[in-house]
């Protein structure tokens, strides 16, 4: 399933200004510990987190993640979204909790 499709189906809000690419999403990775994401996430995972620190961009780049979903209505600084645009990282947002959005993504991808 592509990122654009997921954004639409889950009603995610796009926080960066570049067009959402048709990247294939391989699954979700729900985690707030950067070292854990570096160690265990897979290429094409959509990263679900409350972390809005600039360091998330480097992790997403390093691991070739499909994008970042910020939960609980968390919004990054403008400087972070600007940098995300420069680095071509998609940042999405939702008011839902990590549990809910992970659950919905899991059901969507696994067609449950």
């Amino acid at each position: 399933m592509t990122l654009a499709e997921i954004v639409e189906r889950l009603g995610l809000c796009v926080l960066t200004s570049k067009k959402i690419r048709d990247t294939d999403v391989t699954g979700g990775y729900t985690c707030d510990l950067l070292s854990d994401v570096i160690a265990n996430s897979k290429v094409g995972n959509l990263w679900i987190t409350v972390q809005i620190h600039e360091n998330v961009l480097a992790v997403a780049k390093l691991k070739d993640l499909a994008g970042i979903v910020l939960v609980n209505g968390r919004r990054p600084d403008e400087s972070v979204t600007r940098k995300a645009d420069e680095e071509n990282v998609a940042i999405l947002g939702t008011d839902e909790s990590a549990f809910e959005i992970s659950g919905r993504l899991y059901r969507l991808i696994n067609k449950m």
Binding site: T30, N72, E96, Y106, M112
Partner: peptide, 19 residues
């Protein structure tokens, strides 16, 4: 992993934490 644990529990309709 957290993601799968959420997926399995959510699919059994456990509510997320209300705000």
């Amino acid at each position: 992993f957290m993601y799968k644990a959420c997926g399995l529990l959510y699919s059994r309709s456990i509510e997320g934490v209300e705000k």
